[in-house]
Amino acid sequence: MRLYDTIGATYPVTRRTDPRFAAALLSALGDARTVLNVGAGTGSYEPTDRTVVAVEPSALMRSQRPAGAAPCVAAAAENLPFDDRSFDAAMAVSTVHHWADPIAGLRELRRVARRVVVLTHDSSEAGWLHRFWLTRDYLPETADLVAGRPTLAGQADAIGARVVPLPVPWDCADGLFEAYWRRPEAYLDERVRRGVSVWARLGPEVERRAVDDLGADLGSGRWADRNRDLLALDEADLGLRLLVA
């Protein structure tokens, strides 16, 4: 998570808890009373009615956890400092794509907990690259970011999980990469982009080109012409998935 020691300073500005995502995560956790949150960041989705221990490797992110948040351990997903079956459940939210070895990290979650709940992405052409207009039309370089990474099926198989689609609401409060699919002008705001690691990983030249192209298409009406059908939707399937094991 060294990346977040660089870009994480403004993370809490846009990355807030979305109540619909939170409800889905809580439902998947079931009756678990002790929960390990791996790649916890600032703790946006940590349940407040359970006993939680957080794991976060980034010192900057740990420093931004609010007063009263769950205790946080500096560690990596691939090497969790806990005994087998130490927790009723382990959760990981929008973090697997940052792990050096996602499959090893997922197996660690499976080792230390009786139940595992992971919010991840289907980054295949069908799930993300071609379905989401931002990656398809403005950021084709995202294909390079996911090349060689474990598939969604591979992640699910690693922990024996079922896969549950998680639609993104049009007014999603959590400013993750896909959040503004019906509010495209938000991607022109640098504060929004700084809360999403994809932009940092693609680099400033790609970011500048994509923002310029999107701004031009919004101004000319081309974006609206190409994506008119989206404006009638309240939610969209953009490849977010819950793995529940």
Rank of each mutant, 00 (worst) to 15 (best):
Met1Gly: 13
Thr6Gln: 05
Thr10Glu: 11
Pro12Gly: 08
Val13Glu: 09
Asp18Lys: 06
Ala23Thr: 04
Ala24Asn: 00
Leu25Lys: 06
Leu25Asp: 05
Leu26His: 13
Ser27Tyr: 05
Leu29Ser: 11
Leu29Gln: 09
Leu29Phe: 10
Ala32Leu: 08
Asn37Ser: 14
Ala40Pro: 09
Pro47Phe: 06
Val52Asp: 03
Ala59Val: 07
Leu60Glu: 03
Met61Phe: 00
Gln64Ile: 01
Pro66Tyr: 05
Val73Phe: 08
Asn79Ala: 14
Leu80Pro: 07
Phe82Asn: 12
Asp84His: 14
Asp84Ala: 15
Arg85Ile: 08
Ser86Thr: 15
Ala89Glu: 13
Met91Gln: 12
Ser94Thr: 15
Ile103Phe: 10
Ile103Thr: 14
Leu106Pro: 10
Leu106Cys: 12
Arg107Phe: 07
Glu108Asp: 11
Val112Glu: 09
Ala113Cys: 11
Val117Trp: 01
Val118Tyr: 09
Leu119Cys: 09
Thr120Lys: 04
His121Lys: 07
Asp122Ala: 08
Gly127Met: 12
Phe132Thr: 02
Phe132Ser: 09
Arg136Trp: 05
Asp144Arg: 15
Ala147Cys: 00
Pro150Ser: 14
Ala153Arg: 02
Gln155Trp: 04
Gly160Met: 08
Val163Phe: 07
Val164Tyr: 02
Pro165Ser: 12
Phe177Asn: 09
Glu178Trp: 11
Ala179Ser: 15
Trp181Arg: 12
Arg182Leu: 06
Arg182Phe: 04
Pro184Thr: 08
Glu185His: 10
Arg191Gln: 12
Val196Thr: 03
Val196Arg: 15
Ala200Lys: 00
Leu202Thr: 01
Leu202Met: 00
Pro204Asn: 03
Ala210Met: 07
Val211Glu: 05
Asp212Ala: 15
Gly215Ile: 07
Ala216Asp: 08
Asp217Cys: 07
Gly221Asp: 02
Trp223Glu: 01
Asn227Leu: 02
Arg228Asn: 14
Leu230Ser: 02
Ala232Arg: 04
Leu238Gln: 14
Gly239Cys: 06
Leu242Lys: 12
Leu243Ile: 09
Val244Gly: 12
Val244His: 07
Ala245Val: 10
